[in-house]
Amino acid sequence: MVLETKNDQLNDVEELAGNNILVTTFEKLWNWGRSWSFWPLNYGCNCCPIEVMAAGAGRFDQARFGYEVVRAVPRQADLLTVAGPITLKMKPAIERVWAQMPEPKWVIAMGNCAVSGGPFKDGYSVLPGVDSIIPVDVYIPGCPVRPEALFHGMLELKKKVQQGEYRRS
């Protein structure tokens, strides 16, 4: 099983792509599969998780996109939905959960708290956004984010994955 977990390996795959059609076809197939099956791990401590719950419930139904398999364990998740301010005390927990997730993995910063610290940016105990500790793929501003806006963010991420963009710092 070939797995491109690091950036340099990804570049190798891209180089190979010129000579070998098979690799690119597989890449496309994999990206297709990945983009249709984000299994989220929801981190949340504030208002946005309630909207995440609403997004999973009947009226909005995240399951339509196939993204409803919410994992409680980082080991089986593909997508870390950070929905809430990262406090200094929470920071190590987030870092650890992120490290425990298997590649390829993505992050959505949901809501202004996760994007930038949001309303609590003046607070002494709040980090200025989740991107100060882990790389973020899609930012969804809002306070709190509507479930539809969350879906929009996820579909944007889907586009990104289907185009094969995969960056890791």
Partner: peptide, 11 residues
């Protein structure tokens, strides 16, 4: 799609 994704996850 889920199966394809699971096949290509890091082990």
């Amino acid at each position: 799609a889920d199966a394809i994704k699971l096949l290509t996850k890091e082990d």
